[in-house]
């Protein structure tokens, strides 16, 4: 599993055509090495999900190439892609996306079965990974009975069960509270470092920057180099210093995502959100 490289070269994705076409990703290039944790950040609608889907062979680029170990996977037909999705990539979705009718164990084992393992073998592998992720008490549960953090750990187990080279996670903590979110991020980092996998995480959560080896900033479908980021002290979002609204306090400059956050910080709005005049 060592020595692979995922290489994205000059990739563009346009949705639709004619005057209503949307260019979600424009001429993006990057390479991901084994054992590396790459964090892709950027505002909502900047093309993060689109880029990650193309990297995971879930979406074909309009132009450019994506190659894995020298094989141009973006040129492969639908006949070859299932194998790659099954064995090379583990995809973790923002909203978990577990199969609702299958138990925790079955959700993980079925992916191993699809890759050709016998049922018993698949269940054994699934049980082992789920146990490592602390879910041994939940094997027979249906997804609807799980908490958000548990669901995301099941999704991670599913992504890992066929021992993929790359893990791709789209806002894996967006629907989780911050403590659980941090736990998920620690797991993802461990996964990368222990087995030499590459992990690509999409997020706009500033708090997880520290687990990444490399942070990329996507904006309007393009990587913006050397952008200086700051954290909005009110909502916690990442903001670009050059474009943010600012305020001075105690000699330091603070950066906000919007006027609203700035106003709230400066105490210009009632913090409970109720305007006494209209009550």
């Amino acid at each position: 599993m060592t020595g692979f490289t995922l290489e994205v070269r000059d990739v563009t994705k346009r949705y639709g055509d004619g005057p209503t076409a949307v260019s979600a990703v424009r001429g993006v290039s990057l390479a991901v090495q084994p054992g590396e944790v790459v964090l892709i950040m950027g505002p909502s609608g900047s093309g993060k999900t689109t880029l990650l889907s193309m990297m995971g062979a879930l979406l074909s680029p309009t132009s450019g190439t994506i190659s894995l170990d020298g094989t141009v996977i973006s040129a492969l037909g639908e006949g070859r892609l299932p194998e790659i999705r099954l064995r090379k990539f583990g995809f973790i979705f923002q909203d978990f996306n577990l199969l609702s009718a299958l138990s925790v164990l079955e959700n993980v084992a079925i992916v191993a079965e699809l890759a050709g393992h016998k049922r018993g073998e698949a269940r054994e592998k699934a049980t082992q990974i789920l146990t490592e992720l602390g879910l041994q008490e939940r094997l027979r549960f249906l997804p609807e009975k799980l908490s958000g953090g548990e669901k995301q750990r099941v999704a991670i187990a599913r992504a890992l069960v066929n021992d993929p080279a790359l893990l791709l996670a789209d806002e894996p903590t967006a629907n989780l509270d911050s403590a659980i979110g941090h736990e998920i991020m620690r797991i993802l980092r461990r996964v990368a470092k222990e087995k030499g996998r590459a992990v690509v995480i999409v997020s706009h959560d500033q708090r997880i920057r520290d687990i990444a080896d490399r942070v990329l900033w996507l904006e309007d479908g393009e990587f913006a180099e050397a952008i200086e980021l700051a954290t909005d002290p009110v909502c916690g979002m990442s903001v670009e210093r050059a474009k943010a609204t600012t305020a001075e306090r105690d000699g330091a400059t603070l950066f906000f995502c919007s006027r609203g956050c700035r106003a709230e910080f400066l105490g210009q709005l009632p913090t409970d959100g109720i305007d006494p005049a209209s009550a």
Binding site: L58, E78, P82, E83, I84, R85, L86, R87, F91, N97, L99, S100, V111, L114, A115, R158
Partner: peptide, 15 residues
């Protein structure tokens, strides 16, 4: 939606 998910996970058309 779940059939789309299965495909994303690597299930072939015949599955």
């Amino acid at each position: 939606r779940e059939y789309g998910l299965l495909k994303a996970l690597g299930a072939r058309g015949r599955v």
